[in-house]
């Protein structure tokens, strides 16, 4: 049922997106591009959670890569050191990321402003240090080798097309979960906190509770992404979970726009495309090194913040809406005259 005047999920849009994801491997057959598309799916899961946290709970996390790393290492330890099934690893990836976020979020629910940003920044640095230094468990800077593949109904999900679909199945479930939350009582409560926290709590909204819940949810998303990353990569090391990675996740959300679920998806796709382009150009021109990527990210962040602070997706969609309503009013006027 359509409730006019209330933000609701556009299921046609979701359907089109699913279709694009489904046919992508048939159109793009180069294996390195498919590999990047699979990674994009993993990053989308992280940025979805981060987007919800930033755009709806109004909090910034500068340590999302740490939850991502916790998810990856939890499953690596469970499956490689203890020889358990990756599915049990998934439970640990989710539980440990969620628990850490809950402890942090619970203590900070009463605080507002940039406390969570600072705390997550510190958390990211601590997690990275632990991964490097706690050698008996994490195997130090060289990391884990021989992380097993995932089996589902006796079928091994190998790299390439199977893993691509596997990752994007999770990403699409993630998108649907986010859309469901955003377009619900909880989503409205979160949006109201964003506009006026005082009025929101006067209406009885438990602002701290929802902020904590969304923070935990964002950590769970990052944990699941870490799990997918670990079982795709065969090997993991602390270098994938640095502050740099957290900032790239942040760039994805800021570029796409955090006030929309699709913004996080768009931002992630664009940043990955930039990565691929820089790499490809780097093969042809020696002066373009991987450092060049960071210059591009920095430039993008500055330009987006100056020229479209809401991010790409909300800016484009409101521009399109204006165009459409202009056109419809023009045709109405024509009919009238």
């Amino acid at each position: 049922m359509k409730l006019k005047g209330v933000q609701q999920t556009n299921w046609i849009g979701v359907g089109i997106f699913v279709l694009i994801v489904l046919i992508f491997p048939f159109v793009v057959t180069q294996s390195f591009l498919l590999n990047h598309a699979t990674f994009t799916g993993i990053y989308v899961i992280v940025s979805l959670g981060l987007g919800l946290l930033m755009g709806y709970a109004g909090q910034i996390s500068l340590g999302q890569a740490a939850f991502y790393g916790v998810g990856a290492y939890a499953t690596a330890i469970m499956t490689t050191t203890y020889g358990l099934s990756p599915w049990i690893g998934l439970i640990f990836s989710i539980a440990i990321a969620a628990l850490l976020a809950y402890i942090m979020g619970y203590t900070m629910a009463r605080l507002s402003g940039y406390y969570l940003a600072m705390a997550t920044l510190a958390f990211g640095i601590i997690v990275h240090s632990v991964l490097v230094e706690w050698r008996s468990v994490t195997l130090g800077a060289s990391g884990f080798y021989g992380i097993p593949s995932i089996n589902i109904f006796g079928y091994t999900i190998t790299q390439g097309i199977p893993y691509y679909y596997f990752v994007w199945a999770f990403a699409i479930i993630g998108i649907i979960i986010c859309l469901n939350i955003v377009h619900s009582r909880v989503g409205r409560a979160l949006r109201s906190i964003h506009d006026s926290e005082i009025a929101s709590s006067a209406m009885g909204v438990e602002t701290g509770k929802y902020k904590t819940q969304i923070f935990v949810l964002s950590a769970i998303f990052a944990g699941v992404a870490g799990w997918l990353f670990a079982h795709m990569s065969y090997s993991i090391s602390p270098s994938s979970f640095t502050l740099d990675a957290s900032i790239i996740f942040l760039a994805m959300v800021v570029l796409g726009g955090s006030s929309s679920v699709w913004g996080a998806v768009l931002g992630t796709v664009l940043i990955t495309m930039i990565q691929v382009t820089v790499h490809t150009l780097g093969e042809q021109f020696t002066f373009i090194t991987s450092e060049f990527e960071h210059v591009v990210y920095g430039l993008i962040l500055v330009l987006v913040i100056i020229f479209m602070p809401r991010g790409l997706f909300p800016t484009i969609s409101s521009w399109l809406n204006n165009k459409m309503s202009q056109r419809s009013s023009e045709t109405q006027e024509k009919k009238a005259s």
């Binding site: 005047g5 409205r188 109201s192 506009d195 209406m203």
Partner: peptide
Amino acid sequence: VFKNMTVVENVMVGRH
């Protein structure tokens, strides 16, 4: 008021 929300959405927050 929650200015980025519609009138009906504002009142729905009242139903929270």
